[in-house]
Amino acid sequence: MTEMSRIPFGQPVEPCASHDKWVLLDTLTRAASCFGLNHRTLTVLRALLTFYPERALPDVPGLAVVFPSNRTLSQRLNGMPESTLRRHLATLVRHGIVSRQDSANRKRFARFGGLAFGFDLSPLSRLADALFQAAEAEQRTQQEIAALRARIAATRVRLIDDGALPVDHPLIEDSRRILRRKVDAPTLQVVLEVLETHVDKTRKIPAPAEKMSATDSEIERHIQTTDKAESVCKESAPQNPQPHQQDVPLDEVVSTCKEYQSFLPDVPSDWPNLIRAAQTLYPMMGIDRATFDEAKHRIGSQGTAVAVLCMLEKLPVIHKPGAYLRGLSKKAMQGRLNLRGMIRALESQRLSADNRV
């Protein structure tokens, strides 16, 4: 029987289409969920493939028949019970991955002359195109799920850091449980939309501050009649970061902030180099991309770079750098951010430390 299993039964006279059996198995493994297969069934299929001597698997029916007994298969599968083995074989047949070629007594064997009874593996080769398409679709789905999970985690942390929702809030707890489970993309999308709704609400928090002045009618009339231009300037100030950029000289920033040299030895010679240095540093400090982009919008690219370098100087005492930078952005939006004051405070601390030494 061992010698007979090596005989190339039914080899075609004319060439036929074929595919690498191990590539097909790897592709089917990545697309297993699309075909309703689990890892145990794939393990049985791998064992069946080992009984076919050639690596290239033909797609012509009857040219890739293997005929191991259940006992032989069970031994190759490290003693899998035959009842379990039969169940997985039936699953492969039911999904069209392999097909049966049974003899009259349902025994598996081969005879000289190309007659063989057992499991035909050629359906797997004929499914090659469908397998590749399903694997690509599954990869795109997994990438989408990974992106949604990352956005949910970042949004959840942001809501907690901003104090918009407490840690024990049902929405925060439900999102934590969702991230620990294996769920589909639509479910994750719904959770993300609910979380982002609360993020949008937190962004609108500064708006009621203007309504507080409406309690005094005289002050409201004064703003509307005499200080309207000044009010417009205050509203547009966060969108134009130039005042912050011009207030702090570059050489003063570079001479005061030294910690960045541990990561970037080259001293920035101009503002573009300083901005690039800040873009390199902020992920190392635990600041997410959305927070950094928001700071650039409200403070300006130069102002954000100065803020990042100042934060790096006292990073050991900043427990949540992302929340700290968002606080600076809010101050900039309210016109209360003083970057030069931050630089002077760092200079004073450095001088005090030098005097103590």
Rank of each mutant, 00 (worst) to 15 (best):
E193V: 02
V194P: 00
L195M: 06
T197K: 01
H198V: 03
D200K: 01
A207Y: 05
E210S: 03
M212C: 00
A214W: 10
T215Q: 02
T215D: 01
E220C: 00
R221Q: 13
R221S: 06
H222D: 07
H222R: 08
Q224C: 01
Q224A: 09
T225Y: 03
T226S: 09
C233S: 12
S236C: 03
Q239T: 06
P241E: 05
P243K: 02
H244C: 06
H244R: 08
Q245E: 11
Q245N: 11
V254I: 10
S255H: 08
T256W: 11
T256P: 14
T256K: 13
C257A: 09
E259K: 11
D266K: 09
V267S: 07
S269E: 09
S269N: 12
D270L: 02
W271V: 14
N273H: 14
N273Q: 12
L274P: 09
I275F: 10
A278Q: 14
T280L: 09
L281S: 03
L281P: 07
Y282R: 04
Y282Q: 14
M285W: 15
M285C: 08
G286K: 09
G286Q: 11
D288N: 14
A290T: 15
E294H: 09
A295V: 03
K296C: 13
H297N: 04
R298H: 08
R298V: 10
I299S: 13
S301K: 12
S301H: 10
Q302M: 04
G303C: 07
L309D: 12
L309S: 05
M311L: 13
M311N: 10
M311R: 04
L312E: 13
E313C: 13
E313L: 10
K314I: 11
L315Y: 04
L315E: 08
I318W: 04
I318Q: 04
I318M: 07
H319A: 10
H319F: 04
K320W: 05
P321C: 06
